[in-house]
Design a protein around this nucleic acid. Structure first.
Lengths: 337, 337
DNA sequence: CTGTTAGCGCATTCAC
DNA sequence: GTGAATGCGCTAACAG
């Protein structure tokens, strides 16, 4: 039924070794035999079996990707960056959603390893000891995207979330704001949650602005959450003049709550955040935000992984922890007080 | 270095067949030996090699997904639907972006088939003869998502794009509009382009409204395109009172052009479209649109594929072409004239 | 219930 | 340049 390398060999009147050589572009084949083999391949409609090849060569040219949620725009951009570079280096991607659930993450890491991927790209919630444990059982390289482990034991590419948040809040302060509220993510989340909150705190401290507890509320990163949490700030006696949200989605949600309550952004209340999702420039007013280059993080991670897979890098290199630059995108949601 | 099923067998004092049985949950193993084997597995840190398993069993429990662009929200929702169901049936997903480029699509179909996927999910641009040709070389089932081939030769799941567009335009007409412009996709695109345009035309005809050439403009589905194309309508002597856009993104772009030019939506001009992306309810006014259930299309496609892979379905079944229902979502961008 | 035996389709020595 | 032989790690009869 299925035509194998052996069938091609017989059809072309050569050995299977020779067929293997031409299929793999080995130069040690006389042009004439090469031609014969190609013709036989064509005639028989031969398609190499990558599974058999993988077993024999111990390489599958596929990498595993563990991602929280592919339907979330922030991650789908990252995935696109990964795939583009993977494609460029002739790798395929096995994609697994894990929803930041620890046990699901561990589970998919293991099945990916069982599938003999040549490398692994991981982005998720916190990197716990259990994760590290699972990573250590891997014989193939692993790169953490948009996250990192505490001890820098694994390669990673990310931005400096703390500094990004700091920069956002600092812009507010430079514009004369002192009553600055924050819609944070959960503080259990080291990157988008904790680090961004730390940046907010540091910026306030640097300007001698006391931290007010009623100015900080926790959301879940999503639009609906921003919509909800912003209501709280509206009810305060002393309303904030600016809101810093940990993510664009929450910022846009907050903007809409303000607008739906008759307030103008930025005239009455300024809004700023971190991410720069596509939607940030698709709302009115357009959102001022700190760009987190998701596509680039994906692309750079994948590139780093290819190097690791080819052992191009010396082990404990400086390349292992890359921090990509972030950038303040000035749009129309921040006003001078 | 790597521990194999043979090592486990030796460690547990049984044959490799027995180890294989316990790993694959074959009931024909005495509980006691099962226990011994599990202990050996644990002790050695054995991880089954799915590639070897795939070669021996001729099943890889992975399916290939060809998608235009995972970073496009409409497709990433679909991908999520696919992945959730795949996960439920213990399949993994190899994801390939093909950007609706025919040759790239053909290429990835072939590499996916080389990787011995157990099935293929295809969504792309037009399904040409070359595609059909490639599909026919496949020995594994294929399901087309959010598209279909002209002869219904392959299984597919989609919505009725023509009717969806018709319903949208009909709502406009019911609200008293007669000057209805359309921002269409390219007419080469059978589903999102041509079919939606046909629905627009039929709705006008049904209401005896003559089709005006200056009321139809072609965009590329994206926000920026809607932004741009809408300007044209503003310059017309007889401005439309309503705009039907083939996609939400273009509709939102159009809305913003209108608003940026001092017009109110829907008071001055109504806007409606098809898709119901998440953003449709995240703009002001919230967009009235016909929901295309992308997640469901993905989920149903994958479910259908599992059936095909298990040969659960009789061949020429009615199940093969499924059309999912669409639904008019009434929000705030359409006004009575 | 368990072990033996063959492959699965290919890459890869090693000879020639 | 080319061919023969071996094995990658596992499943799947088949026997017992």
């Amino acid at each position: 039924m299925t035509v194998t390398i052996y069938d091609v060999a017989r059809e072309a009147g050569v050995s299977m070794a020779t067929v293997s050589r031409v299929v793999n572009n080995n130069p040690n084949v006389k042009p004439q035999t090469r031609k014969k083999v190609f013709e036989a391949i064509e005639r028989l409609g031969y398609r190499p079996n990558a599974v058999a090849r993988g077993l024999a060569s111990k390489k599958t040219t596929t990498v595993g990707v563990v991602i929280p949620d592919i339907s979330n725009t922030i991650f789908s951009e990252l995935a696109r960056g990964i795939e583009d570079i993977a494609n460029m280096y002739h790798y395929n991607i096995i994609l697994c959603n894990a929803d930041k659930k620890k046990d699901k993450e561990i589970r998919v890491i293991n099945t990916l390893l069982e599938k003999q991927v040549d490398g692994l790209l991981f982005m998720g919630g916190a990197v716990t000891d259990e994760h590290l444990q699972a990573f250590k059982t891997s014989s193939v390289p692993i790169v953490l995207c948009a996250t990192k482990d505490d001890n820098n034991a694994f390669a990673s590419v990310d931005i400096n979330h703390e500094q990004a948040a700091f920069d956002a809040v600092e812009l507010l302060i430079q514009n004369g704001h002192r009553n600055i509220a924050m819609i944070s993510g959960t503080l259990q989340d080291p990157a988008n949650g904790f680090a961004r909150y730390q940046g907010y705190k540091r910026a306030l401290e640097a300007a001698n602005i006391p931290l007010r507890e009623d100015y900080v509320r926790i959301g879940n990163y999503r639009y609906e959450s921003g919509l909800e949490v912003a209501k709280h700030f509206l009810e305060l006696n002393e309303r904030p003049t600016a809101i810093f949200a940990a993510t664009d989605e929450m910022a846009i949600g907050a903007m809409h709550t303000l607008q739906d309550n008759g307030l103008r952004v930025p005239e009455d209340i300024s809004v700023i955040s971190v991410d720069n999702i596509r939607m940030a420039s698709m709302v009115r007013p357009q959102l001022t935000t700190v760009a987190m280059p998701m596509y680039d993080i994906g692309a750079v991670s994948m590139r780093l992984l290819t190097k690791l897979m080819n052992k191009e890098t010396k082990d404990a290199s400086e390349l292992m922890q890359v921090i990509l630059p972030h950038e303040l995108i000035h749009r129309n949601s921040v006003a001078h007080l």
